[in-house]
Structure formats: C-alpha cells, structure tokens
Amino acid sequence: MGTWVFLAAGWVLLIALYGLVTSRNLIHAIGCLAVAQSSTYLLLLAVGYRREATAPVYSDLTPGTRPVVDPVVQALALTDVVVGATVTALLLALTIQLRKRHHTVDPQALIGLKG
C-alpha cells in the first residue's frame, strides 16, 4: 500500500489537468475540474487515515474502545465537497449563457479576448 494512495491523488490531479488543457468543450472542462477536485478529497482522507481504526462517530461505539481516524480532515473534505458542487453549478450557469451569445462551447472558438 504505502504511498500509492497519495500518488493516486497526484495522478488524478494531473490527468484532470490533461483533460482541461486539451478540452474542446467547456462542459467537459468543467467535468474535468470536478475530477481534479476529487484528488483533494482523496489526499485529505488518505492523510487522515489510521490503520485498524474506525470512524469517529460514537452513536454506536463506546468512546475509547477502538482507535478512530482523524475527524478534522473529514470535516475539511466535507467543506470541500460543498465548495466543489457550488463552483460547478456556477460555471455551468456561465456556460449556458455563453452558448447563447457565442453559439459555441469550444474554448478554441472563443476568440473575443486576446492580445
């Protein structure tokens, strides 16, 4: 196991960046952005994992009987999930309007701003 989980996070980020760089469709690019974000969840939760431990939820567990994983990174990842979903929504709203005015969602065809 070892560092493979961390490396997986790096791979997901870079492959998403590859998709973003070569994207020919803004909706696809926004999807890739969502993939890029999943790398952050992956890293955060991998960092907080503890071997042979269980979730820090004591509704069905007596405190102190079993080791628990790091709750802080879970809270961070939870915040991150919300942030990601909302940013996706906002960017999609922009895409809808862009399509109406530009008649394209291909980044290569957007030439209004340059120089």
């Binding site: 979730a55 994983v69 999930v81």
Partner: peptide
C-alpha cells in the same frame, strides 16, 4: 465507496448526494 472504506461515512454521504 472509497470514503466508506477509509472510515469517513460523513464524507461518503456527501459524495453520494452530490
């Protein structure tokens, strides 16, 4: 599923919903 096996059911629920 990954979050569940990483013992983060809260995040897994969020991810499921989103």
């Amino acid at each position: 599923v990954l979050f569940a096996v990483l013992q983060a059911p809260d995040v897994a629920l969020s991810q499921l919903a989103v």
